[in-house]
């Protein structure tokens, strides 16, 4: 149990600014671990972690798995297909069975909003939300925050705009909470079909034209447009979406300043983002991926009871990061 973060990481809404900063600061020394020839520290040696993925995921699952392995944890991956889940087992039974195997942590991704909290409320193990429905994806927002901080030195006062399908996006919700708590100004931009009306009540600015968002923002976080949104009638066509809301080089060239370009992946090139923008000099999309491993190491380390100052000391002396108490 960790006093620093509580038992679980369900979302950024529940965290304080200090807790978010603690995670980002703890991630700093872990960045270096991934740059070593032997990418391993013994911080979570002997801990068992289950990666419980009820939804397909490549990047997030691999990122968590690397984070766990680089902390020396023992990990098991459970995917929904072929598991007892597909055989009709309920989430509560899955939770009880995991508990019965005395595991230390569960990383869960689930299509239902609230699933991570549901699990966390029912088992003693630490639970990390790796994306629950349309609710939150806290580690994605944390890695976004770390990447913004790396690029701009600070987050407070920065203007960050989320572009695209905010309605269905857990990445958007986590980013909004994290950015607001750290003092950024937050914008959202997209058609009204994909941006819920009540979002403004959270304290964000609303843009209906991408040109206005680009003129306002210093950072654009371009959300993935799920291709099935077109079939569901939220937008008439991908072609028109790109024409009206696409983050293109032409539009960015008209901006008063260069904008930092982010994307949580996987990208639809030519739908929400121009390839030349994604591959351009202001894109930090791959830095986000790199930071993802460090941030997840920090979260797992802190939830397992690791002391932030140990991680920091390890960095200063270039030594190893020790076990948890």
């Amino acid at each position: 149990m960790s006093a620093a973060l509580g038992k679980d990481l369900v979302g950024l809404e529940q965290l304080t600014a200090d807790q978010i900063r603690l995670i980002l600061d703890t991630a700093e020394p872990f960045k270096e671990v991934s740059e070593r020839p032997i990418k391993k520290v013994p911080a979570l040696r002997g801990k068992t972690i289950v990666n419980l993925f009820f939804e397909a995921s490549t990047r997030t699952r691999i990122s968590f798995e690397f984070a766990e392995k680089r902390l020396s944890a023992d990990t098991v991956n459970v995917a929904a297909s072929g598991s007892s889940v597909q055989k009709g087992e309920t989430l509560v039974d899955t939770a009880k069975n995991l508990e019965a195997m005395r595991i230390d942590m569960v990383v869960i991704r689930h299509p239902s909003s609230g699933a991570a909290q549901f699990l966390g409320d029912r088992i003693r193990s630490n639970v990390v939300n790796a994306g629950d429905g349309k609710h939150e994806h806290p580690t994605q927002a944390l890695l976004d925050l770390l990447t913004i901080r790396d690029r701009h030195g600070t987050i407070a006062g920065l203007k960050v705009c989320l572009v695209g399908d905010v309605l269905h996006s857990r990445v958007a919700r986590s980013n909004i909470w994290g950015l607001l708590k750290l003092g950024a100004e937050v914008g959202v931009c997209g058609p009204d079909t994909l941006v819920p009306r009540a979002i403004e009540e959270l304290g964000v600015c609303r843009f209906r034209r991408i040109e206005e968002a680009i003129e306002w923002a210093q950072v654009l976080n371009v959300l993935r447009l799920q291709l099935e949104r077109m079939e569901m009638g939220f937008i008439p066509s991908l072609r028109e979406y790109y024409r009206v809301f696409g983050v293109t080089l032409d539009r960015l060239e008209k901006a008063p300043r260069p904008l930092t370009i982010m994307h949580p992946g996987p990208m639809n090139r030519g739908v929400e983002i121009d390839s030349r923008v994604a591959d351009g000099p202001h894109s930090v999309i791959l830095a986000q991926v790199t930071n993802g491993v460090a941030v997840r190491m920090a979260v797992l380390y802190l939830l397992a009871g690791g002391r932030p100052e140990l991680a920091d000391a390890a960095k200063r002396v270039g030594g190893t990061i020790g076990g948890t108490e």
Binding site: K134, R173, L202
Partner: peptide, 13 residues
């Protein structure tokens, strides 16, 4: 209900 709470919880309203 569709409103601020559903938006925050990420539940369909």
């Amino acid at each position: 209900h569709e409103g601020l709470v559903s938006t925050r919880l990420g539940l369909k309203g």
